[in-house]
Design a protein around this nucleic acid. Structure first.
Lengths: 185, 185
DNA sequence: ACCTGAACACCGTTCAAGT
DNA sequence: ACCTGAACACCGTTCAAGT
């Protein structure tokens, strides 16, 4: 039977979540779909394009309602959603951060952060810097957490995970820095 | 003629810098050394172990003298050195961040940041959070900058690089957040 | 100590051809 | 529109054997 782009994408996300990025292979994905590897190229021009769609799907699945009113809380809401969306899928942080850095997708969180900052009357020249500083922190934190957990479970390293720093506290450091800058202007 | 571990490592770094992570292959590295791929396993137990050594070497080559006295400047000095060390080698940010997250190496910058923070009488429970927030920012920023540059030069995407945010300004956001927290205690 | 040679179990991508 | 089958040019890793 014939598949659609959405079928291929759904199976790709399922494969990623079940067995990690190393297992998300055009050949394994083909096998999962009962199809030759080359058939996937009818739906996606390259593996990179497939991964970009996977990254967007991971973010879409992590969407949550917005409730906060004050801008610091709105920033925390967006960052927290981004973090949980990535942690919700095996190797999610790696995939999303890479796709975003390549400029191929996963841009929604940054766009939303920029909107929140603009709404908060943050000076225009500070908006891109601040929004990027926030996502750099979120990506870095989630990537470390996810990778360290895998390293331990693979037995590659005997690292204590208790000392993994608190996400919210570090985030507040950036938010507070921004707040201090606003108060001073 | 026989090679030493240091020869293999030097050729690995040269290969990475010249052609990127995708080209740093056990087979290509063997060819570069005039040796069978399997010979490399005499010097490194796995490619992961080789990459860990490469990451440490990238950091070692980027070492600079320390001159700052005040703790905010000392933090900036360490972060700036880390950033330039990674940007100084093709795919350096990717390699260093991944090795560090796996807990296999590249730990020196975090250790040094923790020392600076401790010297500055930052509360002990804040030291690991703050040092990690700083490296998460530096890794995220450098990875984006390096990856975006590659994407553009590969023609994979037509993204303006002018809007790449200023590194120091974003870093000051985190430092200021830390400063605000100290003043409040 | 350092390396060869061969094998095993894989990759992404292309492309003519089929339905 | 969606897929097959075969090919091309690769991967990391293991292991017995050589010097």
């Amino acid at each position: 039977m014939a598949h659609h782009r959405s079928d291929v994408l759904a199976h790709a996300v399922a494969l990623l979540d079940a067995h990690g990025l190393a297992a998300l292979t055009m050949r394994r994905l083909g096998a999962e779909l009962g199809v030759q590897p080359s058939a996937i190229y009818h739906h996606f021009p390259s593996k990179q394009a497939l991964l970009a769609a996977v990254a967007d799907e991971i973010l879409a699945r992590g969407a949550r309602p917005r409730t906060a009113a004050a801008w610091p809380d709105r920033l925390r809401e967006v960052c927290s959603e981004l973090r949980h969306a990535m942690l919700g899928c095996t190797d999610g942080a790696d995939v999303v951060a890479t796709v975003w850095a390549f400029g191929l997708g996963a841009a929604a969180p940054v766009v939303e952060l920029e909107k929140v900052l603009t709404d908060a009357d943050v000076p225009a020249e500070l908006v891109p810097v601040a929004s990027r500083a926030l996502v750099h922190y979120v990506f870095g934190h989630a990537f470390e957490e996810q990778t360290a957990r895998q390293a331990v479970s693979l037995g590659a390293v005997d690292r204590s995970l208790e000392s993994l720093p608190d996400f919210d506290l570090g985030l507040d450091l950036v938010v507070d820095g921004l707040r201090a800058r606003l108060a001073g202007s």
